[in-house]
Design a protein around this nucleic acid. Structure first.
Lengths: 205, 205, 205, 205
DNA sequence: CATGAATGAGTTTTCATTCAT
DNA sequence: GATGAATGAAAACTCATTCAT
């Protein structure tokens, strides 16, 4: 099939429609929760017909999975990497950067973050798998970082499994408190500094 | 009204019925999740008629609230208090005790804990309120403890809001990892020691 | 569980309800056809709530299968057996009896017969299987009868497969014409006689 | 309006498109049945857009009616006429010819025949009317033939209504058994001979 | 108290048909 | 003519809750 002007325009509009439904679905899920929201609510909010929804998504669950993917991708980008080689910025500064980015990313996607924190757990096997994969990936990455840090003498000897769990918990709960549970703006730098100081001092050799 | 023998026996049997339904509901919720479980499942498991269920509970949600209360009460008892007066056991030892008790309590109520962690968030306003109350209570208590500790020179100056959030997150995530996500037994003492060392070193003046 | 008076009454009423829905469903299917009739139509006609329908039947198809079973059982009873031993009533008289009974049975279940003839074919695997089983059973029985008849010199040598097919077709079409397509009463005896004469003369040795 | 070359070519291409959709629809209906097949299936199979389908047919039902017309026309041609004048081929030979032609026609249009036999009954008023018209025409023609045959002494006195019904039933059921229900090839001559012998002997004066 | 049949609002999903491009 | 995105009525089915027995 030739990709002529007509086809291209159609594709663009298709993408727009999809994005529009996705965005409105986000709003509806944020307001009513996944189980509380019906496909009816979503199509009403999106201003499209019932059938149109199913033209773009296979099911209610599929929209949710798409939203989840979106946030997880954004978060992954936000975490980025940490450079543990000598001469790189100090571990403390790097950690500070990561935490700030996470706080900012989640804050600018407050609704989405809220939905994921509140609805995504125990929703469904596919959702669970995605979340768990992200979580486990983070954990594994932290474990490695802690091992390397200990070998380099940057952090004290420790049980990296437990410490990684704790650090993730610190960040998770911080996001929960400042982004999910509250609507108020907050000083991401200061919060991150408090968190990082606790973690880094707790790990000083 | 006089509470004669007949009434007492009736009350006892009433209590038993209730407890039986509650217990079976726990099993059903654990297996299928709150939304996946129907009242039909519960009454079938409990071996009572549909109507009987509503004789003891106002709604499906009410059973869930009762289960939630049960776990929260147990947890509150587990947390107990911490003695910050001079001469008391060291803060580290006290914290260690609390964390171990929390891990043990949740581990011996694994199904219940799992349900709460997986299903309770974002379920409903009443559930949210209960959880939030528990959470906020813990947080407030920790903030006070941190302030007192700082005044006594036991912990360094800090932003107690943030630190409390982090500590709660550490515990929450630890429970999540070792109790909720895994079925394997684990060394609560060792895990708690890792956690507490991180927190206490992080807070050392 | 004890089968006390209460239980027995309940069972009786259950059976009544079921029969009532079945009967009304018959009417609805007869009027609108299987595909044209919705569960809504059935429950409206039966005067019960939507959910009640599903209390007694698993699905729309299940009601249809029940109706089908009912007619097939009645037909089977109507066909009965044929006695090919010497001394029994002449083959012609026996055949006459069977055909008359079939015509009468289908006539007194006109709606049901109509539905089966009009809707049941190609509806669904389960329905097809049931119909085919009945059909094949009849065919096989006729083939045997024809073989025995030929051995006894009662009928001429023939290809029983083909002849059985033709005889079934004669009966099927007769029912179709006089019972399904028309509402008029008819002389079952005379019609059967015409049919049987054709078949028997066609088979005379 | 002048029918110039351009118009003629357009007409030809129109006819081709139509035929192509019709042919593919046949395949789809044969595979999934009328109700099981969606317009989506048809347009996908035909390789045209949804809208194009409605450019050539008014509705899903209309395609079906066209297919039905096609088969009925072919069958009518197959039946042809029977010559009852003296000197013509014997009635037996003529009947044999008709039945063989019917079997061959339906066999070479197996898919179509199958659809008509399985789906066409009770589908819809228009379809029913067409089928009934064909059916009644056949019946009327047979009745006349039987009357004439009786007057000429070719067949015994009989109730032509009933006999015609039986003969049609014989043919219908034979087609059903050998063409519709089975995919196996069969000896049309032999089958027809069996059928015709039964009918003719049954009718011998 | 216990029962379980009955309820009906609400859910997700399908699909024949239309019409702007 | 051709396209295919959009429509929305309608379908089958679920389930928390009630209430007559």
């Amino acid at each position: 099939m030739t990709v002529d002007g007509r086809t291209k325009r159609a594709e663009a509009s298709r993408e727009q429609r999809r994005a529009q439904i996705l965005e409105r679905a986000l709003g509806v899920f944020a307001e009513k929760g996944y189980h509380g929201a019906s496909v009816s609510d979503v199509v009403k909010a999106a201003g499209v017909a019932r059938g149109t929804f199913y033209l773009y998504f296979d099911s209610k669950e599929a929209v949710f999975l798409d939203l989840l993917d979106e946030l997880l991708a954004t978060l992954r980008a936000g975490v980025g990497g940490m450079d543990v080689s000598r001469g790189a910025a100090s571990m403390e500064d790097q950690l500070q950067g990561i935490v700030v980015r996470l706080l900012q990313t989640t804050e600018s996607n407050r609704e989405l973050t809220r939905i994921i924190f509140r609805e995504a757990v125990g929703l469904d096997a596919a959702v669970d798998a995605k979340l768990r994969e992200f979580h486990d990936g983070l954990h594994a990455w932290l474990v490695v970082a802690l091992r390397v840090g200990a070998q380099l003498g940057l952090v004290r000897e420790n049980d990296p499994e437990i410490v990684a769990t704790c650090v993730i918990g610190m960040v998770r709960e911080t996001i929960h408190r400042y982004v999910v549970q509250s609507d108020a703006p907050f000083d991401a730098d200061a919060v991150a500094r408090g968190l990082v100081k606790l973690a880094v001092d707790g790990l000083r050799p």
